[in-house]
C-alpha cells in the first residue's frame, strides 16, 4: 500500500488526487462507486463549504459534496492541480 496516500479530507483545495482505496463498507461504498469514487479515478478538491464541511469534489465532470466522516475514509495520491 502506498505510503504517500492521504485521505481526501486532508487534501488541499485545488489539488487533484488519484484514488487508491476506499475504506468504507456497505451501502455508502456502493453509492461512492456509482458516483465515480473508483480506485484509479482522479478526483479534484474543488471547494469547502462556508463552515468548513462538507467539501465538494469534482469527479467525472460532476460535483459531489461529501462530509468529513466519509471523505476521511477515501484515500489517494496527489497527482497535480493548482493548490491555492
Amino acid at each position: 500500500m502506498s505510503t504517500s496516500s492521504i485521505p481526501l479530507s486532508d487534501a488541499a483545495t485545488g489539488s487533484q488526487i488519484c484514488l487508491d482505496r476506499i475504506e468504507v463498507q456497505g451501502v455508502l461504498r456502493r453509492r461512492l462507486l456509482d458516483l465515480g469514487f473508483v480506485p484509479g479515478n482522479i478526483v479534484e478538491v474543488v471547494q469547502k463549504s462556508p463552515l468548513g464541511d462538507p467539501i465538494a469534489f469534482r469527479v467525472n465532470h460532476t460535483m459531489i459534496a461529501l462530509r468529513k466522516e466519509e471523505s476521511s475514509l477515501i484515500f489517494g495520491e496527489y497527482v497535480g492541480g493548482d493548490s491555492l
Binding site: 456509482d34 458516483l35 465515480g36 469527479v59 467525472n60 465532470h61 460532476t62
Partner: peptide, 9 residues
C-alpha cells in the same frame, strides 16, 4: 452530455 462517463455507467 456534459458528464457522459458517469451517465454511461
Amino acid at each position: 452530455a456534459t458528464s457522459l462517463e458517469r451517465n454511461l455507467n
